[in-house]
C-alpha cells in the first residue's frame, strides 16, 4: 500500500463517516436525555429521500438539506410523542419508526430513482491554505462543507455538555429523571427537545448521504448505517469525541472494503471474499463492542436510559 492509497482511503473515510457521525451524535443526545431511539435507520432513509426530492424540485441542495433535517425532526417528534407522552416502550416505538421511515422512503422515492446523480448536491470545497498541507490537507480539508460543520460540532457539543446549564440539565435528566424532576427540571420538555434535536441531526446524516456521499436516491440507500450509528454511540461511550472517532473508524473500514473489492486482485474479486468484505464493518462493530464492554468497567450508559420519566 503506497502513500496515495492511504491518503485516498482516509480522505474517503472521513467522507463516509459523515452520515454515521451525524446519526450517532443525534442518537447520543437522545440517549443522554434517557430516550433510546432505535428508529435511526428509518429516519435516515426518510430524510435522505426527502432531501433528494426537495433538492430536485427547488434546485437547491441547501433547501434539500433543510428538508431532510426537518423530516428527521418530525419523525423523532413522533418517537417522543409515543415514548414520552404516551409512554410506549422505547424499543418497540423505535423499531416501528424504522418501518415507517423505510415505507415513506420507498413510496416517496419511487419517482426519484431515475434521477440518478442529476440532483443538485454538495461538492467538495478545499479550504485555502489548510488543504495545501501535505497528506492531512487532502484528507481533512478537501471535503464537502458538511464535514467542516462536523469539525465544529464535535468540540462545541463537548464544551456545551460540560460548561452550560443546558448541558448539565441534559446529563442529569438521562441519569436520574426523578432527581432532575425533583430539582425542578421538566423531564418531559427536555426529552422532547433532545429527541427532536437528535432526530434533526440524524436527518442531517441521512441528507448528507443522498446529497454528498452518494448523490441521488436509490431504495435502501442507508444500507444499515442507522443501525451502526446506534452501536457507535456505545463504542463512543456517549461522548462527542468518542462518537466522532468511532464514526471515523467505521467509515474508513467501510471504505476500505470497497477499495479492496475494486482492486484488480483476482482473490479479492471472488464473490465469496467480496461477501466477507462487505460483512467486515458489521463484524468489526461486533468485535469493537465486545472489546469495549470487556475493557471498560463502567460503560457510561445513562442510568435512566429506556425508563419512562
Amino acid at each position: 500500500m503506497n502513500a496515495s492509497f492511504m491518503e485516498n482511503l482516509l480522505s474517503a473515510g472521513v467522507e463516509r463517516s459523515l452520515p454515521l457521525f451525524y446519526a450517532a451524535t443525534g442518537e447520543t443526545l437522545s440517549e443522554l436525555s434517557g430516550v433510546l431511539n432505535l428508529g435511526q435507520e428509518g429516519i435516515m432513509l426518510a430524510s435522505a429521500m426527502t432531501a433528494v426530492a426537495v433538492s430536485h424540485t427547488t434546485g437547491s441542495a441547501m433547501a434539500g438539506l433543510m428538508a431532510g433535517m426537518a423530516m428527521g425532526g418530525a419523525m423523532a417528534l413522533l418517537h417522543a410523542l409515543l415514548t414520552v407522552t404516551l409512554r410506549a416502550d422505547q424499543v418497540v416505538a423505535g423499531l416501528s419508526l424504522v418501518f415507517v421511515g423505510t415505507g415513506i422512503a420507498s413510496v416517496g422515492g419511487a419517482g426519484l430513482v431515475a434521477l440518478r446523480q442529476g440532483v443538485p448536491h454538495f461538492e467538495p470545497w478545499a479550504i485555502p491554505l489548510l488543504s495545501d498541507i501535505p497528506f492531512l490537507g487532502n484528507v481533512l480539508f478537501n471535503q464537502v462543507p458538511l464535514v467542516y460543520a462536523a469539525y465544529l460540532m464535535i468540540p462545541t457539543i463537548h464544551w456545551w455538555l460540560g460548561h452550560t446549564r443546558a448541558g448539565l440539565n441534559l446529563r442529569a435528566v438521562g441519569e436520574n429523571p426523578a432527581a432532575a424532576s425533583a430539582m425542578g427540571l421538566s423531564v418531559t420538555r427536555l426529552r422532547y427537545l433532545y429527541v427532536v434535536v437528535g432526530g434533526v441531526l440524524t436527518g442531517l446524516g441521512g441528507a448528507s448521504l443522498s446529497l454528498a456521499i452518494t448523490p441521488g436516491w436509490s431504495d435502501g440507500l442507508s444500507n444499515g448505517q442507522g443501525w451502526i450509528a446506534i452501536g457507535l454511540v456505545i463504542v463512543g461511550g456517549w461522548r462527542p469525541w468518542g462518537v466522532a472517532l468511532a464514526a471515523f473508524f467505521f467509515g474508513t473500514l467501510q471504505r476500505l472494503t470497497l477499495d479492496l473489492q475494486g482492486s484488480q486482485s483476482e482473490f479479492l474479486d471472488s464473490p465469496l471474499v467480496g461477501l466477507f468484505l462487505r460483512m467486515a464493518p458489521y463484524l468489526g462493530a461486533i468485535v469493537v463492542l465486545v472489546l469495549v464492554t470487556r475493557f471498560k468497567k463502567r460503560l457510561g450508559a445513562p442510568e435512566g436510559l429506556g425508563k419512562p420519566a
Binding site: L168, R171, A172, E175, N176, A180, G184, L185, E303
Partner: peptide, 13 residues
C-alpha cells in the same frame, strides 16, 4: 444524580 459530581448536583436546576 449518581454520575454527576457533588458540585454538579448542588447547582443542578
Amino acid at each position: 444524580v449518581e454520575r454527576l459530581t457533588a458540585l454538579e448536583n448542588i447547582v443542578l436546576g
